[in-house]
């Protein structure tokens, strides 16, 4: 299903503008992630799409050729996975998954067949007779997903589906979720505040801030060509190099740096993995923090920018605390964004 939403906004009675006029299109079979910090309006947008929240007048929501703007939630035929899963405690796993099918008035054998199929897809056969309270967090998450897709919704919505899990489980379930969503071959929108999650699962990511979509694109596009300081910072933690641009040279506290192009009127950003400790580097600083992270070290260097400049160091012999180091940054790794934009 192709999903289209135009001019959609949400203002609360107290005047809070949770969502500014927004446009979003999701192609058939595409998995789109709404990524942003808490309070950016991403959950509000998702709830408007589901029909759980009424948007402001003038909003338009289309599922293919159907205008669903004024359709109540129960008639939109969407599947939703809630942050807390919202599994019905009065029903078994099987009954939870079959509930949507029962609401569609399918026959008993049909429901049984469809539930069994979904149980198998989500590898939940063993738990089908259990009460939902007797499941682990990861199992609950899968039941919630199975329940949402069993009625074959036109659109699947997921609200922070992994945030209720502990960190060690989250990563493995993230990859599992990505595989499952592809297997269902379903149009999906999912909300998260975790950039890794968004990048791992989504075909396209829409970054949101202060009630609007700031940039939307493939994870690679967002990472390599952010259109604003916010996106550069939120996706991949780009650091600003605060200095003075003259032509294509950027002068920092710790030395000069060659830019890929004309630098004046631009802010320059760089990511930690592109900051290399190199004896032939043009910048000079001092090691302030060293964090060992298993596969690599995170090294904070002072004296180059007003804040610490973080470098990822892969190798055996990390520099010591207080040591003076030379730092090199390739011109093509620098991200130039027009100044004045926040």
């Amino acid at each position: 299903m192709t999903f289209r939403l135009t001019n959609t906004a949400k203002t609360y009675p107290d005047g809070t503008r949770a969502l500014l006029s927004t446009k979003l299109t999701v192609k058939n079979g595409e998995i789109v992630s709404l990524l942003g910090p808490s309070g950016c309006g991403k959950t509000t947008l998702l709830r408007i799409i589901a029909g759980l929240e009424t948007p402001d007048l003038g909003s338009d929501i289309w599922f293919d050729e159907d205008n669903v703007t004024s359709l109540p939630v129960e008639r939109r035929n969407v599947g939703m996975v809630f942050q807390s899963y919202a599994l019905f405690p009065n029903m078994s796993v099987r009954a939870n998954i079959g509930y949507g099918l029962k609401m569609q008035k399918l026959s008993k054998p049909e429901i049984e067949a469809r539930v069994s199929e979904v149980l198998e897809m989500c590898q939940l056969q063993k738990f089908s007779a259990r009460a939902v309270n007797a499941l682990s967090g990861g199992q609950r998450q899968r039941v919630a997903l199975a329940r949402a897709i069993a009625p074959r919704p036109r659109l699947l919505l997921l609200d922070e589906p992994l945030s209720a899990l502990d960190a060690s489980l989250r990563e493995s379930l993230r990859d599992e979720l990505a595989v499952l969503l592809r297997k269902f071959n379903i149009t999906a929108i999912f909300v998260t505040h975790d950039q890794d999650e968004a990048m791992a699962i989504a075909d396209r990511v829409a970054v949101m801030s202060n009630g609007r979509i700031v940039q939307s694109g493939t994870p690679e596009e967002l990472y390599r060509h952010p259109n604003s300081a916010f996106v550069a910072g939120f996706v991949g933690n780009a650091m600003r190099l605060d200095g003075k641009c003259t032509g294509s040279i950027l002068t920092l506290e710790g030395g000069g740096l060659k830019l890929p192009g004309e630098g004046s009127g631009h802010n320059v950003f760089v990511r930690a993995e592109d900051v290399r400790i190199d004896d032939n580097g043009s910048l000079c600083g001092q090691v302030e923090t060293i964090t060992f992270l298993g596969t690599h070290y995170r090294i904070g260097i002072k004296g180059i920018t007003p804040n610490l400049l973080t470098s990822i160091f892969v190798g055996q012999s990390a520099p010591k605390f207080g040591q003076s180091v030379k730092v090199a940054i390739k011109p093509e790794a620098l991200i130039l964004l027009p100044a004045g934009e926040i």
Partner: peptide
């Protein structure tokens, strides 16, 4: 119990207010 979310869950599955 988180009645509101449970009901919203049922609503997305096609249940009317009475159901």
């Amino acid at each position: 119990i988180d009645l509101k979310t449970l009901e919203e869950g049922a609503a997305t599955l096609g249940a009317s207010p009475w159901q």
